[in-house]
């Protein structure tokens, strides 16, 4: 079975892959409101990711979700560096798993909330 890792793209990330072969593989979803890159992987890499991160799970779309933000950040870096959406980018991320786990442990305590106005609902 094939599993998917999604990387959402904001302006900053879009700029980093501008002009590369990866740019043409950007998909727009949900009425064009969200841009995403999809990395497809097999059983073996899926198992390694689930083993590495306790929160990771597979959703109804066969997407691997709930991985730490540090993992997603590293995945995007590998995509931008290797200019690829192949399994090799995931292998690149798993090669520095200890470093990612360290960052993930820190983010398990604190994630900065978005700076948006919520006064109308409080």
């Amino acid at each position: 079975m094939e599993y998917i890792l999604e990387v959402f793209l904001d302006e900053n990330r879009l700029n980093k892959i501008k002009g590369t072969s990866v740019e043409s593989q950007i998909e727009a979803v949900f009425g064009g409101e969200l841009k995403v890159l999809r990395v497809k992987i097999g059983e073996e890499l899926k198992d390694q990711i689930l083993k590495a991160f306790e929160t990771a799970r597979i959703d109804s779309r066969a997407c691997i979700t709930d991985t730490p933000v540090a993992f997603k950040r590293a995945l995007f870096e590998e995509i931008a560096n290797q200019k690829s959406l192949g399994e090799e980018v995931v292998k690149g991320v798993l090669n520095r798993i200890d470093q990612i786990k360290e960052a993930a442990a820190k983010e398990a305590e604190f994630l900065p909330a978005p700076d948006i106005d919520i006064s109308d609902i409080e």
Partner: peptide, 10 residues
């Protein structure tokens, strides 16, 4: 285009 709670959490 399927949506899930996990997608949104991401």
């Amino acid at each position: 285009q399927k949506l899930s709670g996990s997608l949104i959490r991401g």
